[in-house]
Deep mutational scan, measured.
Amino acid sequence: MDETGKELVLALYDYQEKSPREVTMKKGDILTLLNSTNKDWWKVEVKITVNGKTYERQGFVPAAYVKKL
């Protein structure tokens, strides 16, 4: 869990989004888990830094590609 009590997951593999509802992740990324009720796709939040500014983006990743921490 992070400092706000949200559950975290670890990306076990790289994943490139294939639709606007998904998010890209790299092996080793730590993501915030938002919803894991679907056994195949989990909703996560990723933080992306571009030119020194951090953005948060929500989307789905394959559940088999992440592990709860």
Rank of each mutant, 00 (worst) to 15 (best):
M1P: 15
M1H: 14
D2R: 02
D2F: 04
E3P: 13
E3A: 15
T4K: 05
T4F: 13
G5V: 12
G5A: 11
G5I: 12
K6S: 10
E7R: 12
E7H: 12
E7I: 14
E7T: 12
E7Y: 13
L8V: 08
L8C: 08
L8E: 08
V9M: 04
V9F: 04
V9C: 09
L10S: 05
A11M: 02
A11E: 00
A11T: 03
A11D: 00
L12D: 01
L12P: 00
Y13K: 13
Y13W: 12
D14I: 01
D14Q: 03
D14C: 04
Y15P: 01
Y15N: 01
Y15R: 02
Y15V: 01
K18V: 08
K18W: 03
K18N: 10
K18S: 12
S19Q: 07
S19L: 08
P20L: 08
P20T: 08
P20G: 08
R21F: 12
R21H: 15
E22M: 04
V23A: 05
V23Y: 03
V23N: 02
T24H: 04
T24E: 03
T24Y: 03
T24F: 03
M25C: 05
M25Y: 01
M25W: 01
K26H: 09
K26L: 07
K27F: 04
K27D: 02
K27Q: 10
K27R: 11
G28I: 00
D29F: 02
D29G: 03
D29S: 07
D29C: 04
I30F: 05
I30H: 04
L31W: 03
L31G: 05
T32G: 07
T32R: 14
L33M: 03
L33V: 06
L33A: 02
L34N: 02
N35M: 09
N35Q: 10
N35Y: 05
S36M: 10
S36D: 14
T37Q: 12
T37A: 10
T37M: 09
N38P: 03
K39Q: 11
K39N: 12
K39C: 08
D40V: 12
D40Y: 09
D40W: 15
W41N: 02
W41I: 03
W42Q: 01
K43L: 15
K43M: 15
K43H: 12
K43E: 13
K43C: 10
V44E: 00
V44M: 01
V44H: 00
E45A: 15
E45C: 09
V46A: 15
V46P: 02
V46W: 06
K47N: 09
K47Y: 09
K47A: 09
I48Q: 12
I48E: 10
I48D: 07
I48T: 14
T49Y: 13
T49V: 15
T49G: 06
T49K: 13
V50S: 10
V50P: 03
V50M: 13
V50N: 08
V50D: 09
N51E: 14
N51L: 08
N51P: 06
N51H: 10
N51C: 09
N51V: 06
N51S: 15
N51T: 06
G52N: 09
G52R: 04
G52W: 05
G52K: 07
K53S: 14
K53R: 10
T54Y: 11
Y55A: 07
Y55N: 09
E56N: 14
E56Q: 14
E56M: 15
E56F: 15
E56S: 15
R57A: 07
R57D: 04
Q58D: 07
Q58C: 08
G59H: 01
F60E: 04
F60V: 07
V61E: 00
P62K: 02
P62G: 01
P62S: 01
P62F: 02
A63Y: 02
A63G: 03
A63M: 04
A64E: 12
A64G: 13
A64S: 14
Y65V: 05
Y65F: 12
V66E: 00
V66H: 01
V66F: 04
V66A: 03
V66S: 01
K67M: 11
K67S: 10
K67R: 13
K67C: 11
K67E: 12
K67W: 08
K68T: 07
K68L: 15
K68V: 12
L69S: 03
L69M: 10
